Structure formats: structure tokens, C-alpha cells
Amino acid sequence: MRQPDIVSLAVISDRHTCALPDRDGTISWYCPGAFDQPAVFSSLIDEEKGGYWDINAEGKNFVTRRFDGRSSVLYTTFSVPNGEFHLTDFMPLH
């Protein structure tokens, strides 16, 4: 896992904490529950010890991404050899 370029990061949040997905569909930072809790995914800080979550497919290429209006629901589209697929990232408000 390589660290993402800062310009490729987006923020999804539930107003208590956040996660940082990049254009490849990888979440490299996430502290569940609250911002001051220990991080579950922290490869943004430490590539070797920090964890991450990713989605992968053979021949996957980034096409576009956008937020749904003013929400933190993030839609990302990827192309693959036989078509495309869509990834939806969000954190439910509680």
C-alpha cells in the first residue's frame, strides 16, 4: 500500500468521526466512534503498520467521483475491462 496523494483524498463523516477514501477506493484513515479514538485504518500515517481497506478489480481504473449534493455520500465510478462499477461510501448519522 502506498500513501495516497493528498489531492486524491475525500472526507466522509457522521459528524462524530470521519474516514478518508482516496480515488482508488482505499480508506487509509478511520477512527471509529470519535476523532480522539484509536485509528483502525491509519496507513495514511504509517504505510507499514497502519491498516487500510480497499476494493480492487482486475483492470480497475478511476473514472469519476462526486458527492451527493451537500451530503457526505461519495459516489466513485471505476472502469473495468467488461464495463464499470460504482462504489458508494458513506457513514450513517446517529
Score class of each variant (00 low, 15 high):
40 V>K: 05
94 H>A: 14
61 N>R: 13
64 T>A: 15
37 Q>A: 15
6 I>P: 03
20 L>F: 08
20 L>T: 05
42 S>R: 02
66 R>L: 06
55 I>C: 11
54 D>M: 09
66 R>E: 14
9 L>V: 11
64 T>Q: 14
33 G>L: 13
66 R>T: 09
68 D>E: 14
86 H>L: 13
56 N>W: 14
73 V>I: 15
5 D>M: 09
93 L>R: 15
88 T>G: 01
88 T>K: 13
21 P>F: 09
91 M>C: 12
79 S>M: 03
23 R>I: 04
2 R>S: 06
25 G>D: 09
69 G>N: 06
50 G>K: 05
4 P>E: 06
49 K>G: 02
63 V>A: 11
93 L>P: 05
44 L>V: 06
40 V>F: 00
92 P>E: 12
52 Y>N: 02
10 A>W: 04
20 L>N: 00
26 T>E: 01
47 E>P: 08
38 P>R: 02
50 G>R: 00
5 D>A: 03
66 R>V: 10
8 S>K: 10
45 I>N: 07
59 G>D: 00
12 I>D: 04
61 N>I: 11
55 I>L: 07
60 K>F: 02
87 L>R: 13
36 D>I: 09
58 E>C: 02
21 P>N: 07
50 G>P: 00
6 I>E: 11
50 G>T: 03
28 S>F: 02
70 R>T: 15
10 A>T: 08
87 L>E: 12
77 T>C: 05
21 P>Y: 03
91 M>G: 11
29 W>M: 03
8 S>N: 15
53 W>K: 03
79 S>F: 00
51 G>C: 08
76 T>Y: 04
54 D>C: 11
32 P>M: 06
43 S>C: 04
25 G>S: 01
71 S>D: 08
76 T>E: 12
80 V>I: 15
84 E>A: 15
50 G>W: 01
45 I>A: 06
72 S>Q: 14
40 V>D: 02
85 F>N: 00
77 T>M: 06
27 I>E: 02
90 F>T: 13
13 S>T: 15
69 G>I: 03
91 M>E: 10
54 D>F: 05
22 D>Q: 06
14 D>M: 09
34 A>N: 07
33 G>W: 07
72 S>K: 13
17 T>M: 01
11 V>A: 10
45 I>Y: 04
3 Q>P: 01
77 T>P: 01
94 H>F: 15
29 W>Y: 14
14 D>T: 04
61 N>L: 07
82 N>W: 13
89 D>G: 10
41 F>M: 05
15 R>V: 03
32 P>D: 11
72 S>R: 14
92 P>L: 07
89 D>Q: 12
75 Y>A: 05
24 D>K: 11
33 G>V: 10
85 F>Y: 14
64 T>H: 11
54 D>E: 11
63 V>P: 09
53 W>N: 04
59 G>Y: 04
59 G>A: 05
